[in-house]
Design a protein around this nucleic acid. Structure first.
Lengths: 145, 145
DNA sequence: GCACTTGTGGGTGGGAGTGGGGAGATGTGG
DNA sequence: CCACATCTCCCCACTCCCACCCACAAGTGC
């Protein structure tokens, strides 16, 4: 499970250090894709496999399905940790998420997100708003009870 | 069960001593997350697991669900007691709860809270108001009889 | 007083994150 | 086939933080 929030830098070669606590989970390989927001998502091989299997049930005669295929498969890139615990992120993915040096890694359970730190701060303002969170937790019935 | 109220200090390294009475309950690990107010919550592994299971049923295609994931998973941090009975609190969590040296730990049954002592005092003004408490207990049908 | 517990502060070695050199692989154009 | 640029991955060096260690003050019980 991916938990927590980390401020890391992407170096001039496009490499991003993965937090130590995340490395064991993706030691068998991981997949980076574009996210639903201006961010990137990183899945373990197993989780990505489940997404692929679900997508495979859809029929490619539907143009919207083909668009989904292009997002899921066309943006996905398999990555491995180098000896220093880093991954290399393709330039087109860095461009999509507007990643420069300052990046923020956010755990999200089955996957984790990579954000440009400036863009993340805007999202964080919403995520740390007590009133909004109270409503979210009430709507989804998530009180710790 | 976590009961009582304790005034402890967070040292220059971001460490907070856990009251002795709480230590056994979290000896197997604990999770710190941002609270619903300007505070932090500390769950045992078991309690946190129940929150995670409920959240896992939601689907990430909903933007509000993604925000919930960022709160639950992105703010959570697994901590362990050091040999002196302290935990290390990540800087972004300390910022969220505005924790400086003076902190107050408040038991809340299944979990406990960490407050900036100044902010806690404002909350405590409400908690120690006999009339307000009488109304709360009446509203939630909590009289011992 | 003395032993012990609890909370607090600080030193330190090793691990984590970062940056850069350089060898090898890959692609392109001539 | 070669020359050249680019990319990828290896290794190494450096800084900084954290987990462990110890020290000490205050409180408690005998």
């Amino acid at each position: 499970m991916f938990l927590g929030r980390f401020a890391h830098t992407i170096d001039a070669k496009g490499r991003l250090t993965i937090p130590v606590r995340f490395r064991a989970a993706i030691s068998g390989g991981a997949y980076v894709t574009q996210g639903f927001d201006r961010n990137l998502l990183v899945y373990t091989s197993e989780t990505f496999q489940r997404v692929v299997e679900r997508a495979a049930r859809l029929t490619a005669t539907n143009p919207e399905v083909r668009a989904v295929f292009r997002v899921i498969f066309g943006s996905a890139h398999e990555v491995e940790l180098d000896t220093a615990g880093r991954i290399l992120i393709q330039s087109f993915l860095r461009e999509y998420a507007q990643l420069d040096a300052e990046s923020t890694i956010v755990g999200a359970g089955q996957y984790f997100e990579i954000w440009n730190t400036e863009i993340w701060k805007q999202e964080a303002a919403s995520v740390t708003d007590p009133e909004k969170n109270a409503r979210r937790f009430a709507d989804f019935d998530l009180s710790s009870g």
